[in-house]
Amino acid sequence: MPLAKSTADHIKDLAQRYPSKQSAIIPALWAVQHEQGYVTPEAMAEIAEHLGLPASLIEATASFYSMFLTKPEGRHEVVICVNAPCMLRGADEMTAYLGRALGVRDGGTTADGAITWHSTIECLGACGGAPMMQVDHQFEENLTEERIDAIIERLRQPVAVAAPAPAAASERPKRKAPAPRRTRSES
């Protein structure tokens, strides 16, 4: 699937923004993932073309970073941390509960396509609010079973309802990349 013209133009602009066009690779991958939900080889080839770089370089970079997805996922992404600081405050129990509540295993997507969830050992930077998870990159802290239930219910709503933005984000006047990120139909 070729990139939307707006994405392609954005990538070409990115190439001009940095002292070296190669620096535009990661922002370009973000732009692609924002548009298409994940990054395909075709999209990488297109980035390579727009930036005038070998495609191998795009794949080398894209595959290094854990946040670039290579296959489609649910409309919402839920990532729960199980590193030690979270473990100390009950992350394992919350992770088990999340899995039971969603009815799919770690890494899976709910049958309605609403939610893909996985646990992560990569600290998400909210140990002070552990146990915690990120929902479409927004922080959800001090998790309890009740809170998880409420969040899931919200996410299961039909497409139009996005995750509520946190304070800082709501004040943003103009942002090019609103959540949710994984909705392919948005493009």
């Binding site: 070998p54 191998s56 370089l57 794949e59 080398a60 595959s63 290094f64």
Partner: peptide
């Protein structure tokens, strides 16, 4: 200089 081979994943 062909940059055909690359490291992939990490």
């Amino acid at each position: 200089g062909e940059r055909e081979l690359a490291l992939i994943q990490r």
